[in-house]
């Protein structure tokens, strides 16, 4: 295996060029600016730092942001897979339009999405008024936040799974069927394992995006401290009081959290990938 890899490195061209460009561009656009954030948060003394991020309201907002992003990510993983499957495998009228709709959440400014969603799910909105009699409140509760995050994250899962499913080698599937595997079994044993990497990627992205989302959430969350106040809102609150250092501290924690989660998922994915390839 290692011998093979070593050979690969020699065979394919462009390693230095592409990694060089990647790392340089990454540093310029992402790493150096983010480093500035970390440096800024170091304006605070360790005590101030700690008291900023251990404040009960800040902790509650972290918990809320993480939980709602997790729920939204999971929902998106299930329905994203379903949507990608339906779009790739089945024919139905209006498919092209549905396909186009998927990307809408990217294109719609988040503020507009928030306004539209809160209008729909508010107690006097189209859906909100239907749920009201059952005592279900969506807008201004964590459910509302989750819905906004689902909206934001839909395209991530669909768009990562779709191309892989499209390029999926029908031969393998055919072989499985010929060997007598049932449909569900084929799906589980042959198709799903191939889809695990893109699914995980999609989930990770939807989740990570959810943690930081601000524009669409503030309209539907109600922003009640300790209950529906998300972490990015607290960052804005700190900035509003000209507390750059504190804002940076809250942001750095958020950043490290999502970085670690993303890293974990990427490692998991690579590991499952490798297992798949060697199996």
């Amino acid at each position: 295996m290692t011998a093979l890899i070593r050979k690969k490195r020699r065979v394919l061209p462009g390693f230095r060029l592409t990694t060089g460009i990647t790392v340089t561009y990454l540093s310029l656009i992402v790493l150096i600016p983010l480093a500035a954030l970390v440096v800024k948060s170091a304006d605070l003394s360790p005590d101030q730092w700690w008291s900023t991020i251990s404040n009960p309201r800040v902790v509650a907002s972290y918990r809320l942001s993480l939980l709602t992003a997790l729920c939204a990510g999971l929902v998106n993983m299930v329905f994203g897979l379903l949507l990608a499957w339906v779009l790739v495998r089945y024919k139905f009228p209006g498919k092209a339009i549905v396909d186009g709709l998927i990307d809408l959440p990217f294109a719609l400014p988040t503020a507009v999405a928030g306004i539209a969603l809160s209008a729909i799910y508010a107690p006097n909105g189209w859906v909100g008024s239907l749920l009201e009699p059952f005592g279900i409140k969506v807008a201004y509760t964590p459910i509302g936040i989750t819905i906004a995050l689902i909206f934001i994250g839909v395209p991530f899962v669909v768009r990562t799974v779709q191309p892989v499913l499209q390029d999926f080698d029908k031969g393998t599937e055919e072989a499985a069927v010929l060997l007598g595997a049932y449909r569900w079994r084929t799906f589980r044993k042959v198709i799903l394992p191939e889809l695990v990497p893109p699914l995980l990627t999609g989930f990770a992205l939807a989740f990570a995006r959810g943690i930081g989302e601000y524009g669409s959430v503030v309209f539907i969350s109600g922003n009640m401290p300790l209950k529906t106040e998300i972490a990015p809102l607290l960052i804005v609150t700190k900035l509003e009081q000209f507390e750059y250092g504190q804002a940076a501290a809250v942001a750095v924690v958020l950043l490290v959290l999502s970085f670690l989660l993303l890293l974990l998922i990427n490692v998991l994915q690579r590991w499952s990938n490798r297992r798949l390839r060697t199996a």
Binding site: V30, L34, A36, I211, E213, P232, A248, A251
Partner: peptide
Amino acid sequence: TLIDLPFAVSPVISGLIYILL
């Protein structure tokens, strides 16, 4: 993971970092 990072950064922060620079 670093490539994914901008997804995870709150939009508020992605603007702020350039202000800080």
